[in-house]
């Protein structure tokens, strides 16, 4: 097996327990061995498995498409949907700016279980601006609630917005009251509806 070959040529690491996979007793070995026949060709991704995905097309402005991924624990991850107009600009997005109006959202440090310092924002509040070569687009919160974190990696690596807006390129995480979610839930499109609308396959 490939695994055993790899283990055989790996340098020995002192002080650790035996690390080759074959060191399990037979029973444990049998329990952890997966049944290759039952595995799907492509498993659902962590995002697909863990979140309900919702989309807002033309949010406040044409082509301003955003997503809201809702976790069963009530947290919402917000980012740019595949057909966002900024992603279609030549050269894509080159910068992100969390300095909107009076506050720089990247400078607020939320702390503790009670999420002290978290800003309470409205659905249509500006969350940040994304910039292309010659244009700037305002990104909205899309949900009403507490802003727990913004993705500060985007400030150093804005390209994540172009390459993986649906994962590492997410923009922010909100915590929302369940009642507030029920009020806005129906305004959003499902992933299927969004795909059909924008002709994505």
């Amino acid at each position: 097996m490939a695994g055993e070959d790899a283990a055989a040529c790996a340098p020995q690491v002192g002080g650790h327990a035996p690390r080759d996979a074959a060191s399990f007793d037979e029973e444990t070995r049998a329990l952890i061995a997966p049944d290759a026949g039952s595995l799907p060709a492509t498993p659902p991704s962590a995002v697909e498995a863990n979140f309900a995905r919702y989309f807002a097309a033309d949010y406040l402005n044409p082509g301003h498409d955003q997503y809201v991924y809702r976790h069963p624990n009530g947290l919402c991850v917000v980012g740019l949907a595949p057909a966002h107009v900024a992603l279609k600009e030549e050269g894509g997005i080159t910068a992100i700016d969390f300095n909107v109006g009076k506050t720089d959202r990247s400078e607020i440090k939320v702390t503790g279980k009670r999420k002290r310092n978290a800003q309470h924002l409205q659905e249509n509040s500006a969350l940040c601006k994304v910039c292309t070569k010659d244009k700037t687009f305002v990104v909205r919160c899309c949900v009403k609630g507490q802003l727990l974190e913004i993705n500060d990696r985007l400030m150093k690596q804005p390209d994540l917005l172009n390459t993986s807006a649906d994962r590492e390129g997410y923009i922010a995480i909100f915590m929302q009251k369940p009642a507030d979610w029920l009020k806005v839930k129906d305004k959003f499109l499902s992933f299927e509806e969004y795909k059909n609308l924008r002709g994505i396959c």
Binding site: M1, A6, R19, H71, N73, L75, I173
Partner: peptide, 23 residues
Amino acid sequence: VRVLHRRSPLERKRIIHWMEIEK
């Protein structure tokens, strides 16, 4: 994210002692 609703937002350093991948 799955526990962020009830735990403090923190950066934690952890050690991965060793890994082995088996096909």
